[in-house]
Simulated assay, not measured.
Amino acid sequence: MLYRIALAAVALTAAAACNGEDSAAVQPVAAAPTPTPSPSPSPSGTPVAGTPFARAVVADFDAPWAMTFLPDRRMLVTEKKGELLLVSADGSARRTIATIDVDSAGQGGLMDVVLAPDFATSKRVYFSYSAAGQGGKGVVLARGVLSGDAGAERLSMIEALYRATPLVNGDGHYSGRIAFSPDGQYLFFTNGDRQKFTPAQDKGGSLGKVLRLTPDGKPAANNPLAAQGFLPEVWSNGHRNLLGLAFDAQGHLWQQEMGPKGGDELNLVLPGRDYGWPNVSNGSNYDGSDIPDHAPGDGFEAPKVWWNPVISPGGLMVYSGELFPQYKGDAFIGGLSSQSLVRVDLNGINATKGDQWSMGARIREVEQGPDGAIYVLEDGGDSQGRLLRLTPAS
């Protein structure tokens, strides 16, 4: 297995492209005085050839990374450069409610954003970002409070809760996805391998792992790998670059991650399991050298679905709405290099490939709206950065 370690410095291809510490790293700012207008969506949208969707452009952003909906249907949107935006429900206006001091080189930047389970009373917002510190860079989990009168809100009381360890050099594979357990008691947080390969198997660090934390960012009690010498926050290990994390209606935790040259994965995340990276993968190294495939009895947890050629998976969402009844319970994945929206049939603890629809742009994020529509964020950069609302084509 050691022959692969030397390949850690090999540059990523488009199959692995994706958007990325001290107490002064986060600075809240007051709301901008003048809203920035955005294009309003067409009520019915425009049919998208080869798909079951009609598409309406809601807004346009500068390299967006993630989004979430507030109870009043307004949206929080993160931009790679460090801007957290509060966007009106129709996308026609936005304000910057916080500017985060991120390290945005390479795949770094302001990343995920989710509401606390008790947001209605606490007004807490959780987010992740990449930051530089002594010895290198890493992903940070943070939270703040949405405060202020309507129309003048800002994110205040910002605090860093958890920092990946160790900090390492490089600008890739931060991951940084956040998901709360259905009971609201636990926060799951992904830490990528930072393109360093072996940290995914290292018991002394958080890289290449799914973590289970308390809402305050502390290790949750009784995590399954602590007795084996792992950090007490580790839930599963052997991951590469985990860019999607979501629970289904049955309480199963799903995550998708980018493989190397091939072998993108959708995994059912189980406590204490080793998902094999870098020892096994259904892809190959970037120089074409082989990595052993997942095989029965190899001691590693195999993906439920994998792709070769790659889709370059971005955000992950499990659909629960009524607007697309035929897709209820299915997983939706944004495709980056594949410029696609990917659907996977979930059936209990099993999954099978569904559709892969061409979207004509890199898709970074997928979310379900309060209206049951599917919202996707394009990646920006070489692509566009639009927020699209997908409804059934008539």
Rank of each mutant, 00 (worst) to 15 (best):
P309D: 01
I291V: 06
E83H: 14
V366R: 15
V366I: 04
E367C: 08
Q255Y: 03
G172N: 13
Y3H: 08
L390C: 10
G172V: 12
S122Q: 01
N241K: 12
G381S: 15
P35C: 09
D112M: 11
F180N: 07
N267W: 03
S175W: 03
L85A: 03
G329K: 11
G108I: 12
P296L: 07
A246Q: 12
P47G: 08
R163N: 11
A66G: 15
Q256K: 01
N350L: 04
R163Y: 05
L187G: 06
P64F: 12
R240G: 01
P303F: 00
A56T: 03
C18G: 13
T13G: 15
N237M: 14
A32L: 07
K196Q: 05
L231M: 15
N223W: 05
P33C: 05
P296V: 02
D290S: 07
A56Y: 06
E367F: 09
A132V: 07
S104R: 13
G315R: 11
P52N: 15
G259D: 11
L141D: 07
R212S: 06
G45E: 09
W235I: 12
D298K: 10
A393E: 08
V113C: 07
A164K: 15
L141C: 06
R273Y: 00
T190D: 08
K203Y: 00
S23F: 07
A227Y: 04
G172D: 09
G276N: 06
E21I: 05
V113F: 03
A15K: 07
A160S: 07
L268K: 07
L207I: 14
R124V: 00
M1Y: 08
Q356G: 00
K203S: 02
A31S: 15
G135V: 08
N279E: 08
R73Y: 09
V234Q: 05
M75G: 02
G109E: 08
V168D: 02
H252S: 02
A116H: 10
I363V: 05
S340I: 09
G315L: 09
R124K: 11
W277K: 10
S156T: 10
